[in-house]
Design a protein around this nucleic acid. Sequence first.
DNA 1: CGCCTATTTGAAAACCGTCAAAGTATGTGG
DNA 2: CCACATACTTTGACGGTTTTCAAATAGGCG
Lengths: 226, 226
Amino acid sequence: MLPAEKSEILKKSLIFSSLNEEELSGLAGLSVERSFQPNEFVFWEGDEADYFYVIAQGRIKVVKHASSGKEFIIAFFEPGEMFGEVAVFEGKPYPASAQALSASKVLGINRQNFLDFLATRPKVALRIINILGGRLRDAQGRLKDLAGERVEQRLAHILLMLASRMGNTLPFTRQELADMAGMTTETAIRLTGGLSERGIIRTSRGQLVILDEAKLRALAEGPPTV
Amino acid sequence: MLPAEKSEILKKSLIFSSLNEEELSGLAGLSVERSFQPNEFVFWEGDEADYFYVIAQGRIKVVKHASSGKEFIIAFFEPGEMFGEVAVFEGKPYPASAQALSASKVLGINRQNFLDFLATRPKVALRIINILGGRLRDAQGRLKDLAGERVEQRLAHILLMLASRMGNTLPFTRQELADMAGMTTETAIRLTGGLSERGIIRTSRGQLVILDEAKLRALAEGPPTV
DNA sequence: CGCCTATTTGAAAACCGTCAAAGTATGTGG
DNA sequence: CCACATACTTTGACGGTTTTCAAATAGGCG
């Protein structure tokens, strides 16, 4: 990949939108390109964290494994988004694993180089604070759901969250939804089946379309028995 | 409170440890002191977020309420720690409520003033990135637990996390532990009862002492049936 | 001493996970 | 182009974990 292409990719990322061309190419010079096949892992939980990543193309999921072996999906990321940053900013091993879902290209940015870069770019630092704040907010909302809500409401919240980021057509299997909502695949299927019958969503293999966001929102907030 | 006292409090906080005296007093000038009675709320979920806070004295808990009315405790904070920052850095309403547990004093720092301050203090920004990263890591670990582990393992994880921050004597009621681990008070009592019988912990009203951290760790990792 | 909150115990029921088996898209290789 | 392998989807029955509901005890503070 040419340096100019790297700059182009970084520029599209929200994190670096405040940088000028010169700064972008400086950062591009610090970055390393890596490519991954579908299902290949970018890093594993516990690995030394020397790099964080910005996605150039493809989709990445970040997961943790429970002691039972069950997988929990922390997040999906798309081109322009960063991942692996928690570990890098803390200087500790990665707290989760990252796996490519499709053929993917990412730019890896070295921890120490980036920290040095940040020390003179307060705007970028503020942007990162912003992004981390948003992720923390999401995480806290999900914590509350997992701790206190029933499966149906958990799934509804997940669908609404995904819809707000990606639109009403969601490219996820029921298994993936289940792993995000902390339930089994069977339960996710039964729930989506029920929602389909009520005309709230439409499902096909590996995809789910939200038809009636208002009803879904009502479901997410209160129990169906009003 | 005198400006010098404010500086003193800020200085003790990890966030501002890189500041010199002059910077500290500048920041102290931007801060407002507020006092709270036990059980009084510092802010409510959904309030406009103009300030974030550093604790001078007392203990604060940050909570969210599920649709059922059940309370979920996101975190407890002690003197020197900051809270309410997620909302401030995002410019959105508070995502949770903050309640004083004991008579408390806090320093409130205005959002816009602080963002201006940060724009010329990259070290403080990096420290905040660090703290947010740590909180995000914690939150992700708890997400995985809530999604995939049984109550006993969830409780064990919570106890270990608290112990690593506060030592082996934990000043929490079973109700509070239950609200952190996403279970009912009755379940928390039954579980702690079992742990006491096995000599792993000792409990009294509003307090829990960890006696055998190794056994607790074993419990947290794997199912009890080895 | 009295009130409020925390702790305790028990029994019943609900929710959801587990297990098993089968059907159905998608893509691959012959 | 068909056959097959692989993943995703579907359905049913059962059982266990945890919540729910109820009632009683006990500790601490004014």
